[in-house]
């Protein structure tokens, strides 16, 4: 290609116009009104949407953590132990399960979760954690982490 001037060079940039715009319109397909049909408007809103998407990748993690905390608080309260004590006792027992998995257990395997809380309560009693000193547990609850 021969560029006779700088202006003509600037105009001949990039891939074919149709395909370049089509990429943007694909991203704007779910918008409403002119921002999905008119390129100059669509590009503004696509840029904004991509900016939001970037920010939300971090927000999503925070949101999920909040949700797991809320759900775990509820699940622990069902078994007379609070979340802080529960996590602390699990750590002391060397039971390393993250919040997401604990929530999944609480929802889909309530009996497994209950046995985890009982381990935590037993360990808390052994170590003299005030929160669980007077919570009733069946006798003989023991795990490897509780042996000294």
């Amino acid at each position: 290609m021969v560029f006779q001037s700088l202006t003509l060079f600037a105009r001949s940039r990039g891939p074919d116009e149709f395909w370049r715009k089509r990429k943007i319109f694909k991203l704007a397909a779910h918008f409403v009104g002119r921002k999905r049909n008119c390129y100059s408007i669509a590009i503004r809103y696509v840029h904004r949407a991509l900016r939001y998407a970037t920010m939300s990748r971090k927000l999503k993690k925070a949101d999920m953590l909040n949700l797991w905390n809320t759900r775990l608080t509820a699940a622990c309260a069902e078994h007379d132990i609070n979340l802080r004590t529960f996590k602390e006792a699990l750590m002391r027992n060397n039971i390393l399960i993250d919040r997401k998995t604990l929530v999944d257990l609480a929802i889909w395997e309530p009996r497994s979760f209950k046995s985890l809380t009982q381990l935590a309560i037993a360990r808390g009693k052994q170590d003299g954690l005030n929160d669980v000193m007077y919570v009733k547990t069946p006798p003989g609850v023991i795990t490897r982490g509780m042996l000294k």
Partner: peptide
Amino acid sequence: GLHKPIYH
């Protein structure tokens, strides 16, 4: 429903 593990 904040007392349920299925809360959302």
